[in-house]
C-alpha cells in the first residue's frame, strides 16, 4: 500500500482511539476484531498502540491476534467464513505479530510444543497446510514449515534438528499418500519413532489410512488438525 495512504489511515485510527481512551482489554478486543475482520491496517495500528501503551506484547499476541484467529478458525469450520476472509484474517494477524514479536523477551514465552509440517514428496497442493500453519501458530505452537513437495528424509532430519514433538504431513493425492508411511518408516529406522508423533491430513487420506500406516492421528478438516495436535501434545506431556 502507498505510504501516504498508510499514514492517512494511521491518523484516522489515532483520532478514533485517542478520543476513546481505551483500556488494555478494549485494545486487545479491538485487535482480535481487526484480525477477525481481516483489517490489516487496523491490526498494524493497534499493534503499535500496544507498544506505545506499554501493554505486554506477548499478551497482545495471545489475547488479541491469536484469540481473533481462533474465532476465525471456528467460523471457517462452521461455514460462516470462507477462504478469502480467512486469508485476510491471517494477513492481519501476521501484520500485527510482525510488529509485536521483536519486543517479546524469549523467556516470557511458555513452550507449548513444536511441529514440523509439510506437504509430502510429489505433491504441491499446500493451501490446507498453510491454513493449518496459521491456526497452529495462533494456538501458541512453534511451527517449522517445510513447504510442499518435501522429501521424506527432510521431515525426519528437521524434526531431529529442531527437537520437534510432532511431524504433520498432508497430501491431496493418493499417488503421493504412500510418502507418509515412508516418513514413519524412517522414524523407525532412525530409532526415534517413540519420540516423534505423526499426524496426517488432506483430501486423499482418512482415519482408516492413518491407522493402516501407523500414524498417531488424522485431521479430517483443517480445524480438526489443531485439536489433534493439542491432544497429541497433551499426551506427550502426560508421558504417552
Amino acid at each position: 500500500m502507498h505510504q501516504g495512504r498508510i499514514e492517512e489511515k494511521f491518523k484516522k485510527n489515532n483520532v478514533i482511539y485517542n478520543r476513546k481512551q481505551m483500556s488494555q482489554e478494549e485494545i486487545l478486543a479491538e485487535l482480535a476484531k481487526a484480525v477477525i475482520d481481516g483489517d490489516v491496517d487496523k491490526a498494524k495500528y493497534l499493534a503499535h498502540k500496544v507498544l506505545e501503551l506499554k501493554i505486554d506484547p506477548y499478551k497482545a499476541i495471545m489475547d488479541g491476534c491469536a484469540a481473533g484467529m481462533r474465532i476465525v478458525g471456528e467460523k471457517y469450520q462452521n461455514g460462516e467464513m470462507f477462504i478469502p476472509e480467512l486469508l485476510y484474517s491471517a494477513e492481519a494477524m501476521y501484520a500485527a505479530t510482525d510488529v509485536l514479536s521483536p519486543h517479546i523477551k524469549a523467556e516470557k514465552i511458555p513452550y507449548s510444543g513444536k511441529v514440523v509440517i509439510g506437504v509430502v514428496e510429489g505433491d504441491i497442493h499446500d493451501i490446507g497446510k498453510n491454513i493449518l500453519v496459521t491456526l497452529l501458530k495462533a494456538s501458541g505452537f512453534e511451527v517449522v514449515d517445510l513447504g510442499r513437495d518435501v522429501p521424506t528424509k527432510d521431515f525426519v532430519q528437521k524434526a531431529k534438528d529442531e527437537k520437534a514433538e510432532i511431524i504433520a504431513m498432508s497430501t491431496l493425492m493418493t499417488t503421493t499418500a504412500p510418502g507418509m508411511k515412508k516418513v514413519i518408516d524412517v522414524l523407525y529406522e532412525e530409532g526415534i519413532r517413540d519420540k516423534v508423533k505423526t499426524i496426517i491430513g488432506g483430501a486423499a487420506v482418512s482415519k482408516e489410512f492413518a491407522k493402516a500406516i501407523g500414524a498417531d492421528a488424522y485431521g479430517e478438516e483443517v480445524v480438526d488438525g489443531v485439536e489433534m495436535v493439542k491432544n497429541l501434545m497433551s499426551s506427550i506431556k502426560r508421558g504417552g
Binding site: T174, K207, E208
Partner: peptide
C-alpha cells in the same frame, strides 16, 4: 463411495 476412507485403503 468414499475414496480416502474405503476405496483406497480398503
Amino acid at each position: 463411495a468414499d475414496n480416502p476412507k474405503v476405496i483406497y485403503p480398503g
